[in-house]
Design a protein around this nucleic acid. Structure first.
Length: 416
RNA sequence: GGACAAGUGGGUGAGCGGCUGAAACCACAUCCCUGCUAAGGAUGCGUACGGGUAACUGUACCGAGAGUUCGAAUCUCUCCUUGUCCA
């Protein structure tokens, strides 16, 4: 959630920054107005309530002294009617404000380049050079089927489109990758956690998936629970509504979970293969940090994800997301794109974001900064998307006969 | 699944419908005293939002929500969680 005090203080600054993200200034104007109206309504209600409390106190005194209370009671009763009205107005305004405020994205950092979509993202650097193939590189679905690693039809049969099943070395590689990634992240100081795959509405509001993106989520029918679209949701919200000790920070965590996305609006994109599935494996990094720590930790997280790809000998590049491609909660984001020779292009395999205090404000995660309570910064990033890593291994390590070389670092995980 | 009980501040734990934002103790912070393998004393110490340069002050919060009442941590209802017992 954006900082309403900041909005009040620096309306022009805030609205200009949000305009870069396509948020209409009139919306911000309306937010500011609603906030001011709520303050007035609150003040009105609180004054009446203060009167009421004072009169109620007198009641006790009157009774003890055996005084007549009829007159006082008439006054109090009349005041009560006004309080009820004032409270209704206040609640209504509160709801209006919240509804609007929860739907406004984070303020993009000044370093975020302007742009409409992913084509305007800015490359930061390339790591490793894609190798030349003496033959035409195949796409991963072809290789996956040839090797019997992934069965797309049978996945669809037991669920629906955009589901797949892995067999043999395909399945074992997935597991090896998960373990390798978790171990790697752990070696960089991220504590492993294991969390529920179902979360409630409050958690999703805390990290910003709700209320705006309900269509992208799988929801239980008989309970207010949702399948997680990313481990970021349960892991970040572990500390929801807590006041942490300064010495606890930063809290660096890594978690493996399945992720579930409806992929609403992605019809026709990546329909073949396992680039875009409804369920996929992902190893995630989440950090809860003091504000002054978050820039450095962000860099550490980017390095961690990039170094995993380097260890797997997969060429990739880092890009700085432009305003148009930036997620709802992020102040700034670096994507890591892995080279896919079969597709002859770089494709996203990780996305690392600093949300600064955007999620912390929603999820009420604070720490004791001396005597004051201060919102923490929260960061999250994939390290990495497992399915896409497998895709990258298949395409980059393919031989002319269709066989695939296993990366050295994975061999211990496969008993090789 | 059924019965009963409980949910209070960082922790333990008191709380009669008004004098309780909440005793006491522990922890923590600052200060004082003392000089020895330890302690003693004083003060402070919840959160959110609003007003005030500030001292301070208003409102709300004792699992969540609703209700009764002039007034609720305290009474009633619903829900959630935990514990114990039963199936």
């Amino acid at each position: 959630m954006i900082d309403l005090k900041l909005l009040q203080k620096d309306f022009d600054g805030v609205s200009a920054k949000l305009a870069r993200k396509g948020v209409d200034t009139s919306l911000i104007e309306s937010l500011k107005e609603k906030n001011e109206k709520l303050k007035l309504a609150k003040a009105a209600y609180e004054t009446l309530q203060a009167d009421q409390n004072a009169m109620s106190k007198e009641f006790g005194v009157y009774k003890r002294e055996g005084k007549d209370i009829n007159e006082l009671k008439a006054k109090v009763d009349a005041n009560k009617i006004k309080i009820t009205e004032a409270l209704d107005i206040q609640r209504e305004r509160q709801e209006e404000l919240e509804k609007l405020a929860m739907a406004i994205p984070n303020i993009p950092d000044d370093s975020v380049p302007d742009g409409a979509d992913e084509d305007d993202n800015v490359e930061i650097k390339k790591v490793l050079t894609p190798k030349e193939f003496s033959f035409t590189a195949k796409e991963h679905w072809e290789l996956a089927e040839e090797n019997g690693w992934i069965d797309f039809e049978r996945g669809v049969k037991i669920a629906t489109s955009r589901f797949s099943a892995s067999f043999g070395m395909g399945a074992r590689l997935e597991r090896a990758l998960i373990n390798f990634m978790l171990d790697f992240n752990r070696s960089r100081g991220f504590e492993e956690v294991s969390v529920p795959a179902l979360v409630n509405r409050t958690a999703l509001e805390g990290t910003g998936q709700l209320p705006k993106f309900e269509d992208d989520l799988y929801k239980m029918q008989d309970q207010e629970l949702f399948l997680i679209p990313t481990a970021e949701v349960p892991v970040t919200n572990l500390f929801q509504d807590e006041i942490l000790q300064e010495t606890q920070l930063p809290i660096k965590m890594t978690a493996y979970t399945s992720c579930f996305r409806k992929e609403a609006g992605a019809a026709g994109r990546d329909t073949r293969g396992m680039i875009r599935q409804h369920q996929f494996h992902k190893v995630e990094l989440v950090t809860i940090a003091k504000p002054e720590q978050s820039e450095q930790i962000f860099e550490d997280m980017v390095s961690c994800a990039s170094d995993i790809l380097t260890a797997l000998e997969l060429p990739h590049r880092l890009v700085n997301l432009c305003t148009g491609d930036l997620g709802f909660g992020a102040a700034y984001t670096t994507d890591i794109e892995v080279w896919l020779p079969g597709q002859n292009q770089y494709r996203e395999i990780s996305s690392i974001s600093n949300t600064r205090e955007f999620q912390a404000r929603r999820a009420k995660i604070r720490y004791k900064d001396g005597k004051k309570n201060t919102f923490v910064h929260t960061l999250n990033g994939s390290s990495l998307a497992v399915g896409r890593t497998l895709v990258a291994i298949m395409e980059n390590n393919q031989n002319e006969d269709g066989s695939i070389d296993i990366p050295e670092v994975l061999k211990p995980y496969l008993g090789m």
